[in-house]
Design a protein around this nucleic acid. Sequence first.
RNA 1: UCCUCGAUAGCUCAGCUGGUUAGAGCACAUGACUGUUAAUCAUGGGGUCCCUGGUUCGAGCCCAGGUCGGGGAGCCA
Length: 504
Amino acid sequence: MYIKDLSKYEGQEVTLRGWASNRRSSKGLEFVILRDGTGFCQCIVDATKVAAEVFEKAGKLKLESSFSLKGKVVKDERQLGGYEVHVSELEIYQIAEEYPIAKKEHGVDFLTDNRHLWLRSSRQWAIMKIRNRIIYSIHQFFQENEFVEMDAPIFTGNACEGTTNLFETNYFDETAYLSQSGQLYGEAMAMAMGRIYTFGPTFRAEKSKTRRHLTEFWMIEPEMAFFDIFDNMDLIEAFLRRVVSDVLRDCKNELTIIGRDTAVLENITKPFPRLTYDEAVRIIKGEQDVNGKNSIKELETELASVLAAIEATKKEIAEREEKIKTPGMKKGEIGFNQSKIDKLKQELADLEEQARNIPQWLNSARNFTYGNDLGGSDETVITRLFDVPIMVYNWPHAVKAFYLKRDPDDNRFARGVDVLAPEGYGEIVGGGERETNEQMLREKITEHELPMEAFEWYLDLRKYGSVPHAGFGLGLERLVTWICKLPHVRESIPFPRMMGRLLP
RNA sequence: UCCUCGAUAGCUCAGCUGGUUAGAGCACAUGACUGUUAAUCAUGGGGUCCCUGGUUCGAGCCCAGGUCGGGGAGCCA
């Protein structure tokens, strides 16, 4: 019997098992919030209706104590799930020690140190449920469309793209690297099966300390024979539409818990704008407007509003600090104001951070040099102008990976495509059509100063029945982060691995 | 690697221009309260002010070096 099924048992006796996520008490009433992994439910122990011993046990429950109970399911509109349980019996498994995560605001450092416990909180629970629904949708979409899941190896003998820093391991006294992408293997598997997708962990040893980087993350990489870049973009669009629609339909409760405004997600049914690199650059530099919005002006407006918000927040903090000094103020009111002040200070720190960053971004957008790759801030700047994911394709070939196909209509460009999520989230997908010409690939490998011998097996794919093909890589955590509108990728994965963080 | 912000009670944070015994809220303990939603109210215990050195009659506060963490650039999903 689980909390998620309570609605089917209205008026009946049920047995539930779980943990106490909160407890409040009055003289003759104990309110215990039970969580069992499937949901949260308020359980009421009424001293006038249960044995004295049961009431006493309920009073002993500390945060996160484990217990089971029997009780009657009662409809109550005030509850999030719509139901509560009137307890008749209660058995304790264990009374928990003092729980470190209090019913209050905590800093990221403390919460990350306590990730093993933080996962129990309702917000983290909801995010993980959504992550699970996304993973399920990904498999459903590909399986229903004749894709075969085939995974790439995690130990690799060579730095596949030669671009990023990799983790080195000792592999029987040889150097092995942890995979940064299954892409090249995906191509080999697509030549065997037609359509495949990989789903596995990926490792990047970059010393990136930002809200969108992890050193270990999960990547989904489909690869399709006989697809060109346009077929690829059609697939990406259908795929993302499917995943987001499933979440909207099946995770309403979870989205409510995390307070996600779903308006932007509902836009997923609209077509995704497809911009060439040239157009994207004009938009970033402010030379071309989008629906009457100009990137530079939007940024300037935002900077002004951030600065105004900083002043307003400072003023409110000062006012509340003055207020709580008033003699004779009730303790509760002081506490209320104090916690408001704490919250405002956190907001202020975030705003000040933005006020330091936006001028840099403005500078970077204004002085963007044609021919360069888009930086993180450029992605942020452009995606804020749209309310759906956008696809940017046809990149200057020099800034993209060696295996991308040169555009047959204009050889300055390579047929890569990046999908940028709206609301400032930036790149969630990178992909493209692959080069089919062996000679061209050899030149590119030499140009990138990569060891030719490590790629001979890959070049074989162009000798034996080379066909047009394309694929893409989706960063699972970045997708979760955008769909949930999280402030940081670290909340999108059970145990995030970042620079300097191996525990828990 | 570079830029930038920070480290004070178990947690979140105050601490003024360097000055006596370092504060608040939450959490915890005890008591009060019959419908609470981070319940509320009263009382109480709780400190290596990140480390090392320096300036000073005097350092949580100033200076130098270090450690750890946040955010951003580069790189990328």
